[in-house]
């Protein structure tokens, strides 16, 4: 099908984009890669008055270093993230998860910032951003502000982005020390969204797990951290038994939905199994 008619703006700078959003009327949609928005518009589940297309805002593309952080432009495509050497070096978890996003063509258009701002709890990148304690730089009419990942994801498809604001970049702390990472995705067919997935980053020291960060995909209306498991792993022996024991609490505090692909209790079970597998792999076991 064809989207309903809309007014179209194609800014080339962030300032122009903010102006276009301000001028766009009641119902403005920001078009990043469009790989979720355009299908929804084709099905006429969304019919915005104005679409502000960030495709030509070049300053939003690319990955750079800024001291202890990687800075990923919101309009950096998944394909560019996948091949970026800085990501490969400092945040391979992002690359691993990105590789599982949809398919080759979608990754050519879809963007890192777009996927995060869309905040689909079944999306792969929100839980990764959460696990890595990423920060979200948001531009608005009154300047820029930075929101930690823990505060960025507010509810189902809802973020801390206010009307008139724009996600411009994501700052990912470079992790110091010996980190291992693993994104463990569980879905029914290659293209499908995650039923559950687990993003794990583990720092090992002297045969022990010094620190573990675990993000859960699709275990609630927002991405979640498996805090109880993280706590149990901190200082634990890097053994299969210790990890298995810690992973049993992976679903604590989650509130997964029940749908076509799984009832809540099944998702809770998967979270435990996948957490065990992801942490084990990240810990090099």
């Amino acid at each position: 099908m064809i989207p309903a008619p809309f007014a179209y703006a194609r800014p080339t700078t962030v300032d122009e984009a903010l102006q276009a959003i301000a001028d766009g009327g009641e119902d403005v949609k920001i078009l990043a890669g469009g790989q979720s928005l355009i299908p929804v518009m084709r099905l006429r589940l969304a019919a915005p008055e104005t679409v502000v297309d960030l495709d030509r805002v070049d300053e939003l593309r690319g990955v750079r270093e800024d001291g202890d952080a990687l800075v990923i432009g919101a309009m950096t495509t998944h394909a560019d993230v996948l091949h970026d050497p800085l990501i490969g070096q400092y945040a391979p978890l992002i690359a691993q998860a990105t590789e599982t996003v949809a398919d080759r063509q979608v990754r050519r258009r879809g963007t890192f910032g777009g996927a995060l701002a869309h905040a689909d709890p079944a999306g792969d990148l929100p839980s990764v951003a959460l696990a890595l304690d990423a920060e979200f730089v948001i531009a608005g009419p009154n300047g820029r502000r930075t929101v930690p990942a823990a505060d960025f994801f507010v509810d189902y498809l809802t973020t801390a982005l206010e009307e008139g604001e724009l996600l411009v970049e994501i700052r990912v702390p470079k992790l110091a020390g010996q980190w291992g990472m693993r994104y463990e995705k569980f879905n029914r067919v290659a293209q499908a969204w995650s039923i559950v997935a687990v993003a794990a980053a583990v720092r090992r020291e002297d045969g022990h797990i010094a620190e573990a960060r675990i993000g859960l995909t699709n275990m609630g209306p927002t991405p979640l951290r498996a805090r109880a498991t993280e706590a149990a792993l901190a200082g634990a022996e890097a053994s299969a038994e210790a990890i298995a024991a810690a992973a049993r609490s992976a679903a604590e505090g989650t509130s997964p939905s029940s749908d076509l692909n799984g009832q809540a209790d099944y998702r809770e079970h998967l979270a435990q199994v996948l957490t065990r597998r992801a942490v084990s792999a990240a810990a090099g076991l």
Binding site: Y8, L31, G34, Q35, I38, P39, R42, L43, D53, A79, A102, D103, R104, Q105, V106, R108, R109, Q191
Partner: peptide, 22 residues
């Protein structure tokens, strides 16, 4: 829904689904 890929073309030399590009 951008699933089937039948509409794939190259945009500046890279494969995209032309039903999900304006």
């Amino acid at each position: 829904t951008s699933n089937c890929g039948a509409c794939t073309v190259h945009l500046d030399g890279q494969a995209v689904k032309s039903c999900t590009v304006l």
